[in-house]
Design a protein around this nucleic acid. Sequence first.
DNA 1: CGGGCCACCTGGCGGC
DNA 2: TGCCGCCAGGTGGCCC
Length: 273
Amino acid sequence: MPELPEIETVCHGLRPFLENNIIQNVQTNRDNLRYPFPPLFKERLETARVLKIERRAKYILLHLDNELTWVIHLGMSGRIRINEEVSNKHDHVVWTTQQDCHFVYNDPRRFGLMDLVVTSKLNQHRLFADLGIDPFDAVLTPEFLHKALATNKRPLKSVLLDQTIIVGLGNIYVCEALWLTNLSPFREANTLSLKQWDKLLENILCVLKKAITAGGSTLKDYSQPNGELGYFQHQFNAYGREGKQCLNDSCKGSITRVVQAGRSTFYCIDCSK
DNA sequence: CGGGCCACCTGGCGGC
DNA sequence: TGCCGCCAGGTGGCCC
């Protein structure tokens, strides 16, 4: 479930049950997700208090009172359920708090990861050292993008997916933001005017905000930790709409699916330039 | 070095 | 039914 809006939604759902609470009874049901669990994973988490939960890029950071940060990434299929006692296949990590809340990390494909990192050294950690700018960071401006990509001939689709430039966007929201801006995913980054970067950034922020408000997008399963569905998928204009009519009022075209850098891209050939 | 491709996993779905 | 191929919200290593 994991682009920026979905991670934001998960953080939001976890806070009331985890922040200021003490972790106990951590149980791992296998040795690894994408990577092995770090040494003493269970021991270092148990009795620690969660001070604050925040999102960085598509990572969930749980800052603990023992100078460590619990890093969680949901990969493609990771989910966290709260207070749902039924146990399912692929429930890989289970934990509780002293307040008797019960948490389950479920991840069929195991592209997710968990790690424990010294909080003061987070920025140097290999997962975070090369990350680009968050879309909601004021440092990210049209002027910055225009300048930074002035000689970059890569297609916009791959530039926007590149987490070393802007973080948080994934396949869905890149397709949506480009469609909203009438920009082709094949358009070379260096050919955008400052005005076009301005429009594109505005649409990126707009689509992300709307998706967060909607609780994220749910493609196959529950999105939010409380089991509620995210419902932004009902507002998709491009993603998953192959063969359907373009929703741009002044356009008679339809949405095409192509494979770009190994991933599906949905766009309108007629009105995206 | 930059960038494209493919692997990492499991499951669901459509077609035959 | 059952089997097969394709597809899926991400990342990172390898190879040119």
